[in-house]
Amino acid sequence: MSSTVEREPAHVVIKRPRRMPIPLLGWVGIVVVAFWLIMAVFGPMLTPHPAGEVIDPDGFGPMVPGMWLGSDVLGRDVLSRIMAGAQTTVGPAIAATLLAVFIGGTLALAAAAVGGWIDTALSRTMDAVISVPSLLFGLVAVAALGVSVPVLICTAGVIYVPGAFRIWRSLAVNVNAMDYVSVARERGEGMPYIMRREILPNLLGPVLADCGLRFVFAVLLLSSLSFLGLGIQPPDADWGSMVRENLPGLIYGAPAAIFPAAALATLTIGVNLLVDNLPGRER
């Protein structure tokens, strides 16, 4: 045999995987999401006027310097209320997302790694829960348990458990079928090691993207409930309830209902752009 096949030369060895650049739209998403996250933390401290203070006695005032986005139904500053409302909008949604992903993800990993009847039972239950429209689920829960922030968080959390479960499970089942998991089993590794060290690290990318989408769903659900008057209750206000209380102003052409809705739109579109343009994600 010729000497060229002896061994592969060391100098051609290391191909570095090229770092994928983030496209422009991805950057737009990052900036928008970062902006709203900062608002959610510091917004209430930065408002030009106190969010609850009535400044304009007439209400539905126009956009003027000092009240850049006009005033709302009671004559409060719309800009200040949107800045303050970021917290009430984003906070419960993040909490609900974490709840959903934690419960759904844990159950999914267990279902994928153990398999058998546990997998079947969990999957069937999740299929049943997912076959109730989410807003309807929310309405019934609110009708039964009354409106409060913990109820809203738990309701939204439970509603999005099946979605998180499905994604995590399908990813985990794919990874579980890989030979390297089989190798770990052949070695006699225990289930916790296989779940934590062999499966979980390979799920992180797609699962993060899924978290983003689930957060968008939670934001939309919670603000829709607020819009129906069945979410966050006064005196607290999230963007959804701000749209609701200013809806009558539309007749007079007052934009007070549009701005909070637009704020929601930028947040949800921003997260979508971010998730869609994560590096290494195929389009």
Binding site: L250, G253, A257, A261, A265, I269
Partner: peptide, 26 residues
Amino acid sequence: SVATLSIVAVPEFFIGTLAVLVFAVN
């Protein structure tokens, strides 16, 4: 693609209120 992504991402009541403002009020 970008337009539909945006439409899917925004809340229904944003589209509804915008439609009212533009077509009914203005």
